[in-house]
Design a binder for these strands. Structure first.
Lengths: 193, 193
DNA sequence: TTGGTTTATTAAACTAGTTTAATGTTTTTG
DNA sequence: CAAAAACATTAAACTAGTTTAATAAACCAA
């Protein structure tokens, strides 16, 4: 369980055994049942989480009641509302488990403790935030310039393991289209082959 | 000139006089004429820049030759291709001056020097990247859920000082619509009043 | 100061994506 | 296991946004 987190971190920085130990001890293990929430709109996000097992969706509900998926997180991904967590303001997002899941959570206080006492951790999170940001920039450009059909095709290619675990409703909410239109796209693609 | 940068940094962290001095000495001053480029697609981005004066657009050209504006930067904003800069890979972006401009540039080597010798700087850039990321998340959600008309109205409200300095072509490229459709939107809004 | 280039507007035909609603299928849950 | 709920598909009418093209205005540059 801790192993997966260890691997994830080692990919970015190298920690001594003492540092490793100190850092991992800051995390709290938690299981979340399918359809329950790690965070709801209006709450302050008290954690940054590492997904050990399962699947989450991070989404926003707009004025018209439509759900927009900001991102999904499966094993080996991190989840939080970074805005709410860092600025301690009320969240505009929901984080919901789409499967029975397991996470490792770190609180703001403990994360700050890590920043101050384990300088490499500051680097870890800076690098991670940068990577996430670059990925979001790419997605922004794609959403501005590509058709929904192309975005769907590329999503399937990029995250094949995710596709199988998501309903078309969820995929459509990520692509920014209706599930009806996604259905049309899928038919069109199937017909082409 | 240095004053503006000093203000910008003080908003995030506080540095001693010695630290301040050491950090500022890492920057190089440069003027860029209107319509010339700080970065072109295919180049590796060798700098992170702080805009002292002027206006830049950071954009991507897609397969069909359309320009997508990732963001604009005026006085007091930072510009770089964070992906190209940090990973030293060839950029997919153009950074062009839309007015005669002045910037302060820091190289990767000098930024890394700062990270290692001025620990607060690591925090500075982590916090800045986080803020930028949160803003991009908001824009992503807006682009998924709001009509172009609403996005335009909100853009005008949020960046009134920017609107006056941008052509409608640039604004449209930021909103992800054609300038023809932006023109329709503007007519519709003017008619309402 | 004129002539070339970029910009903004308008119109009209078009296309990508939405909305609503109906139908059958699969999944969940008591 | 049965009933209810959630899901995927299809059709048809609709709307938001594009495309192409024409025109006038504004902006440089030689």
């Amino acid at each position: 369980m801790i192993e997966l987190l260890k691997q994830n971190i080692t990919a970015h920085i190298s920690l001594s055994d003492t540092e490793t130990e100190a850092f991992y001890n800051l995390f709290q293990y938690k299981t979340i049942k399918k359809k329950s929430f790690l965070l709801r709109e209006g709450e302050v996000c008290k954690f940054e989480g590492f997904v050990v097992k399962g699947l989450f969706r991070v989404y926003h509900i707009d004025q018209n009641g439509f759900e927009q998926v900001l991102y999904f997180a499966i094993e080996n991904w991190w989840i939080t509302d970074i805005d709410s967590f860092t600025n301690e303001r009320s969240s505009q997002l929901f984080i919901e488990a789409l499967e029975d899941s397991e996470v490792l959570l770190i609180s703001k206080k403990d994360k700050e403790f890590a920043y101050e006492n384990l300088p490499k951790i500051e680097k870890l999170f800076r690098v991670m935030t940068q990577k996430t940001h670059v990925a979001l920039q790419r997605r922004m450009i794609d959403n501005l310039s590509k058709t929904a059909e192309l975005r769907y095709i590329e999503f399937v290619e990029k995250y094949p393991q995710l596709i199988q675990r998501l309903s078309n409703i969820q995929i459509a909410a990520y692509l920014g289209i209706t599930n009806v239109f996604l259905s049309n796209i899928r038919r069109k693609i199937a017909y082409k082959k």
